[in-house]
């Protein structure tokens, strides 16, 4: 493989990382809202929240992507395929992240909140100072896991024509008749990215742990 082709693959790997990172971030924000809706006492929030999680976790991402990619133009919204891909990935990961966050918030020890009540902290202050930091620390491993899953799942956006790592490998193998080489290189690049994210995640966990005595 020439240097030029390798550079193309690297560029495509960059697109994969960018696409996944943006989707994870947007998905985190949507996930927070869905999580809040799902644990709400108001049934008009709780039922849609529950339905959202169930739907987006129950439908294959490929079908979601094909649906969103074709639905947007059908209802008159013209966006580039990369935007449709990011929307699809974000909506899907939001459902998983909402569940992770819910688990995190529910695992905050009750005693801490009771203690906060005793010293007269307002509910908002409790959220900012106690519940959110602890929940975040508890959900970090799940978040890293989800990031790795989305990195791998982002290969599916190749079917809607976004040029990321898998699509680039597809194009290059089609033009050079060397699928073994290009798919292996793509696989190796995914592997390196996933290991890097996993490694970064465990470093972050260790750094956050220094703050807690547990």
């Amino acid at each position: 493989m020439s240097m030029r082709l390798f550079e193309l693959m690297l560029w495509a790997a960059g697109n994969t990382i960018l696409l996944s990172a943006i989707s994870i971030l947007i998905g985190f924000v949507i996930g927070l809202m869905v999580c809040a809706a799902k644990v709400s006492a108001n049934p008009f929030l709780r039922i849609p929240g529950t339905l959202y999680v169930s739907l987006f976790r129950g439908v294959p991402l490929l079908v979601q992507l094909l649906l969103i990619y074709n639905l947007l133009p059908a209802v008159g919204i013209m966006v580039p395929s990369v935007v449709a891909a990011v929307i699809g990935l974000s909506l899907c990961t939001a459902a998983y992240q909402a569940e992770n966050l819910r688990g995190g918030f529910q695992s905050v020890p009750r005693g801490l909140l009771e203690a906060a009540d005793m010293v007269g902290m307002s509910p908002w202050k409790q959220l900012v100072r106690i519940r959110a930091p602890i929940a975040f620390r508890l959900t970090l491993p799940a978040l890293v896991n989800e990031a790795i899953l989305i990195l791998k799942a982002s290969s599916l956006v190749s079917v809607v024509g976004v040029i990321e790592l898998t699509r680039m490998a597809q194009n290059l193998s089609a033009s050079s008749f060397r699928p073994l080489l290009f798919y292996s290189v793509a696989g190796a690049m995914y592997l390196v990215i996933c290991w890097a994210v996993a490694g970064g995640g465990s470093i972050a966990e260790r750094m956050l742990r220094t703050g807690s005595r547990a």
Binding site: L156, A169, Q170, P179, S184, Y190, L191, W195
Partner: peptide, 21 residues
């Protein structure tokens, strides 16, 4: 590690398009 670290789609492509080689 390799199977868990790479996308299913890439594995399928490698098997289906790379296999004949």
């Amino acid at each position: 590690e390799v199977i868990r670290g790479t996308p299913f789609l890439v594995q399928l492509f490698l098997l289906y398009f790379g296999g004949p080689f």
